[in-house]
Design a protein around this nucleic acid. Structure first.
Length: 724
DNA sequence: TTCCACTAG
């Protein structure tokens, strides 16, 4: 047949090309169309594809819509495309989709750009901290919820957006919760005309967004822009997992909720007959039962932390050695957040032929990463969670039972590629007793940052703000007090000028922002900049159990007799110096390789250090814009330590006769964390970065100070105490 | 004498 001829010719062409190692333009075109076709087919087969028209209609006729989409429905990638095609980006407006995690924002945007056949950053793009791919032509914009919150500081009406989609709303991060409250009032404002009077009345009625300071040039100019202009209405779409739809609908005044089918394979849920007294022991027994009695397929085990993972790993290896050789073909891997990336990557590689993979994971594997090949899930039913005690203002990490939503999320991990099984190591009656969903983060964290942001947005009445779930008033009061003590708020709880405004502008914990502002007066801004960058990331020291001694020796090279803060500066500078040297005359690959080697030799977590460098760069930019002079105190650590004492005065502790410490502000008894340079040699008076309750009450990142500095540098606090 | 789940700006 004639039509066969070109095809035949192409085939021979192709094989020639393969021999030559070249690819012709024709081949590229064929590959391009084949891929396009494949993508179109995949899109069509998604559950959400069949309801496109209905969904678009729902969005058109409802200003707020709750979409309940199960895993694998395609809601995150498809809905924005449907809305774009339906013309919801008229007048150059943008559809914004928020994600709680950076990786999700990036990977989904890439996928959607490909599906649309456009270059990333054109019609489709993403914007996350340190990485913005959007351009003026971007109409579908994926971003983190925290970033949209920051955008609101500059453009309070989010006027660029015609639609905002809050994805994964059921996770209830602090950012999601604040955004929901904000969007609710923005939406009301945008449904009416904007002029000076109406504007202020309307905003007062809606809890805020009131410009309290005309001298804030940037915001004032935005306001001017809007005067007399009728902003187009904002469409709001909340996407959530099924258990929570009702709460969202109620919050938005009985908003309409629609359900989109998911695509998930069935997962058999098995419970134990009786409660287990030792869940680690039960985990081991279940693990080997699956291994010896069930068919092929990898096993995912949910544990609470690094230590637990490491000890289970040892026990599994021990037990394996006791089995007949045929049954020993198990590859045990682990994944948790502080594990270096190279080791994390190993869980994604297929096991050697004939081997079964067993992955010991924290809740990082619940949502953040998806591991292929999982057929069995073991869920002991516990999670390590942060809790906040408003009374003492201290945070702690404790092991608590999971929620029903978490248990469902975990079991779902067994049904991604085929039917699976989930072993819950507790009786079914216990499952019924679990709370439906995890307590929202806003109910269990320090609120000083959230409050500072809201104040900067003009929301004055924090207690009265329309939160979906109100934080406890005790926590609000505690944080307000802290912000007053730091000088961010006046005695009347108004944002102070300029300190409060400056602090709100920095994407840092308020106490770190305060330390930077103070450092410009102490002539040690350069050192403090490095310090807050290092304190803002996970620990830079990596201590694998099997090489503990080596790691300790390596860490000694950096340690300072003054404390952990100067030690962190030393690590950062050593890294920086090495990078500078390595950059000279080396290719990028070579530099990368050198860097990895350097980090490995020094037991340094390179991901954490890179992150610190990114933060350093960003904050440096902010600081320069504020007009603060960045100077170094050189080797004069005295100035630096005094500055630390002036900023962290609430975190000061005195040594007690028995070698423990007492926090001056709260009276809390604490110990120095074993990772500190002062774990053995204990100075009389210290300041610390954070308190954490695990097996003991520990304080981490400790530096030596003089007791007398406190009354001198923080008279607003310490003279008061003496009077009492 | 010994240690932090997970995110985000």
């Amino acid at each position: 047949m004639p039509s066969m001829a070109p095809g035949g010719a192409k085939n021979s062409n192709q094989s020639n090309n393969q021999l030559n190692g070249k690819v012709s333009n024709d081949d590229r075109r064929v590959e391009f169309f084949a891929r396009k076709h494949r993508i179109a087919q995949q899109r069509k087969s998604l559950p959400i594809a069949s309801v496109e028209k209905r969904l678009v209609e729902e969005v058109r006729s409802n200003n707020i819509l709750i979409i309940v989409g199960e895993t694998g429905s395609g809601k995150t990638t498809q809905l924005p495309q449907f809305l774009f095609n339906a013309g919801l980006c008229h007048d150059g407006k943008v559809i914004g989709i928020t994600q709680p995690r950076r990786v999700a924002a990036v990977s989904v945007a890439k996928r959607v750009a490909e599906e649309c056949g456009v270059q990333l950053g054109q019609r489709v793009g993403y914007s996350i901290r340190f990485d913005d791919t959007t351009s003026s032509s971007t109409r579908i914009k994926y971003m983190t919820d925290g970033l949209l919150l920051r955008e609101a500081l500059l453009d309070p009406y989010l006027s660029r957006y015609s639609v905002i989609i809050i994805d994964e709303a059921h996770e209830r991060t602090v950012h999601t919760d604040v955004l929901l409250g904000l969007l609710k009032s923005v939406q009301k404002v945008r449904s009416g005309p904007i002029n000076e009077c109406a504007n202020i009345d309307c905003m007062k009625a809606n809890n805020g967004l009131l410009m309290e300071k005309e001298n804030d040039a940037q915001r004032a100019s935005i306001l001017k822009q809007y005067r007399g202009i009728k902003l187009s209405p904002l469409k709001l779409i909340i996407m959530s997992a099924s258990l929570d739809a009702r709460v969202f609908s109620e919050y938005f005044g009985g908003a309409r909720a629609v359900h989109v089918q998911g695509r998930q394979f069935p997962v058999d849920i098995l419970y134990t007959r009786h409660p287990e007294t030792d869940y680690l022991d039960a985990t081991l027994i279940t693990l080997f039962q699956i291994h010896l009695e069930e068919g092929p397929g990898d096993i995912l085990v949910f544990l609470t932390g690094q230590e637990e993972i490491e000890s289970v790993e040892r026990l599994v290896q021990e037990k394996l050695r006791q089995l007949p050789e045929d049954n020993q073909k198990v590859k045990v891997l682990s994944i948790f957040s502080s594990l270096p990336s190279e080791k994390q990557m190993q869980v994604f590689m297929p096991a050697p032929t004939g081997f079964r993979k067993v992955i010991l994971a924290t809740n990082i594997a619940e949502t953040s990463v998806t591991i292929p090949g999982i057929k069995y899930v073991i869920d002991p039913g516990f999670v390590k969670a942060r809790t906040y005690c408003a009374h003492t203002g201290m945070e702690s990490l404790i092991i608590v039972p999971t929620s029903k939503a978490q248990a469902l999320q975990r079991s779902g991990r067994a049904g991604r590629e085929g039917p699976g099984k989930c072993f819950r190591l507790y009786p079914e009656s216990e499952f019924d007793k679990l709370s439906d969903s995890t307590v929202p983060e806003i109910r269990r964290c320090n609120l000083s940052n959230v409050i500072l942001q809201l104040k900067a947005l003009g929301v004055d009445d924090i207690i009265g703000f329309d939160f979906m779930e109100k934080p406890s008033s005790e926590a609000v009061v505690k944080s307000l007090e802290l912000l007053v003590l730091l000088g961010a708020l006046t005695e009347e709880y108004k944002l102070s000028d300029p300190v409060g405004h400056q602090m709100a502008r920095l994407p840092l914990e308020p106490i770190y922002s305060k330390a930077l502002i103070l450092a410009s007066q102490f002539n040690c801004l350069e050192e403090m900049l490095i310090t807050v960058a290092m304190l803002s990331v996970e620990s830079v020291f990596y201590n694998p159990r099997e090489k503990l001694e080596e790691a300790r020796t390596a860490a000694k090279c950096f340690s300072s007799l003054e404390g952990d803060h100067p030690t962190l500066i030393a690590v950062y500078r050593a890294f920086d110096e090495f990078l500078e040297k390595s950059n000279l005359g080396n290719s990028r690959e070579k530099t990368e390789k050198n860097l990895r080697k350097w980090c490995k030799e020094n037991f340094i977590n390179s991901r954490a250090l890179r992150h610190a460098r990114d933060i350093h760069r960003q904050i440096r930019g902010n600081i320069e814009q504020m007009g603060l002079r960045i100077v170094s105190c050189g080797d004069d650590m005295l100035q630096f330590r005094r500055c630390l004492a002036g900023a962290f005065f609430l975190n000061a502790a005195l040594k007690q006769p028995d070698g423990t410490y007492r926090v001056l502000s709260s009276g809390q008894g604490v110990q120095i964390h074993p990772s500190s340079v002062f774990f053995r040699t204990k100075p009389d008076c210290i300041i610390f970065d954070e308190f954490v309750r695990t097996t003991h009450n520990y304080v981490r990142n400790v530096t030596r100070i003089d007791y007398l500095w406190l009354a001198e540098l923080a008279p607003q606090y310490y003279t008061l105490q003496e009077q009492e």
